[in-house]
Design a protein around this nucleic acid. Structure first.
Lengths: 247, 247
DNA sequence: CGTGCTCTTGAAAACCCTCAAGGGAAGTGG
DNA sequence: CCACTTCCCTTGAGGGTTTTCAAGAGCACG
């Protein structure tokens, strides 16, 4: 049941998210201060990391794996409001309780900081505060982009939008190449996709099949996706591509 | 056509948004620095304040009136991604071009700062940076709350959600009372409501009529709304109220 | 009194959801 | 090794909500 997950990166200098996380702009001495209050935690896929309404005793960064921020109504309707990827920040300085459920989508490793010390450190470390502002503004943009998807796009466009976001992220992480087919594994179940897109899982499944039938995507198994032509996918997503090269 | 709108608040100390805007936590000397780079601009209802893709030469705060942040697809589908109320901040330090259209919903007065000097000032004024982080986090929460509305609520629940947000804001601004009926004027056309809610204007109109027929709201004319029972409205919105007193 | 704008209402159609059944792969225990 | 279960996914049929298309009402303005 409980796998002993190895924590390898005790040293910030060797951390895989060193240059993208909230600590990205930190100097050596600032990193050392962070190291003193940090600790790692691992969660298995499916585990709830934070319950909405709970006391938040820590903030932190996703080191590896994927988590989701979700909101649930009384009758069970669920909406994912954020996808947390490696380097993304979890928690809100200055707030006591969590506003959303944070759920591990895959096995995940987090770099956590006790909240109080982190807030104190942030107050005297402009590099951290500034980076957090940057990241928050980016998340706000992503949330607003997603509002267009949720409010105005068709089911087919929604699926294409999600796939192109994941494809783009994968392309950034794995290599800079933009030519040739893009290949990746979907980190989400059909149900998670549905919760992200404001659809039912049946509609997700149907639209995935339709995109496959039309040659926009290729599927091996349920999760392994190949995108032969990124431009076509973006057309299906309804985004202005106008070439779309260089992503 | 062009009304000569009076700019009254040249002095920050008397500014109506003094304690809620990005300058809220500023000391006297910080305010003086802001005063040196600030200027007021007025826009009439319907005017576009900023075009998506344009160079951003200023950032600023809404002093009075309402503006909307909207995103438009090539085929004309429009989604409002933010509602800018007095004290809300416009613009993103560190970015060159605007990501969204900013449109004056009502006549509006803005307190603007030239972008470059503001960024420099922010770099050496933690009070401003900290306040901006707070405000950005609040906006992120609002955006995420709205994602649930867009993704998972029915047309009727969407309308009720919008009305309760406006009602709550009005209640906060005009007085602390929470008992008795709430009365306000809708600052949005049916079309603007539709763009906010991801609906068509016909559906908005129909659901407004339905809520009226069911006694959830009362309408005088098209814009003047009375809410006899805030609890009932929030039930219709699908929000957990559990009493809901104290707003 | 016509024009323009916002809003309302109706009828038909489209899209997505709900309900239902079943397939395929992985894991468990006999 | 093979039933059996479970989980995830696919596909079909029917129905409901919202959209689309269309017409007209109410109001302000010139």
């Amino acid at each position: 049941m409980t796998l002993p997950i190895q924590i390898e990166h005790s040293n910030c200098g060797e951390c895989p998210i060193r240059h993208r996380a909230v600590c990205a702009h930190c100097e050596r001495d600032e990193l050392e201060a962070l190291e003193e209050i940090k600790y790692y935690r691992s969660f298995e896929a499916g585990q709830t990391i934070i319950w909405s309404g709970d006391q938040m005793n820590f903030v932190g960064s996703v080191v590896s794996g994927i988590a989701s921020l979700t909101q649930t109504m009384e009758d069970g309707r669920t909406q994912m409001v954020g996808l947390l990827l490696p380097s993304d920040f979890v928690g809100r300085p200055g707030r006591e309780t969590a506003a959303y459920d944070v759920i591990a989508t895959t096995d995940i490793v987090m770099c956590c900081f006790r909240k109080k010390p982190f807030e104190e450190l942030m107050a005297r470390t402009p590099h951290i505060a500034h980076r957090l502002l940057q990241m928050t503004l980016d998340e706000l943009d992503a949330a607003r982009e997603w509002m267009l998807v949720l409010g105005r796009k068709t089911a087919r466009e929604k699926i294409a939008s999600l796939l192109s976001i994941i494809a783009r992220r994968d392309a950034t992480l794995t290599r800079g190449r933009s030519s040739g087919p893009i290949v990746f594994d979907l980190p989400l179940t059909r149900e998670a996709m549905a919760d992200y897109l404001g659809l039912t899982l049946e509609t997700v499944s149907r639209q995935m099949s339709a995109l496959k039938k039309d040659g926009i995507i290729q599927l091996e198994g349920k999760r392994h996706v190949t995108i032969p032509d990124m431009g076509r996918l973006m057309e299906e997503a309804g985004d202005d591509t106008d070439g779309g090269f260089l992503v």
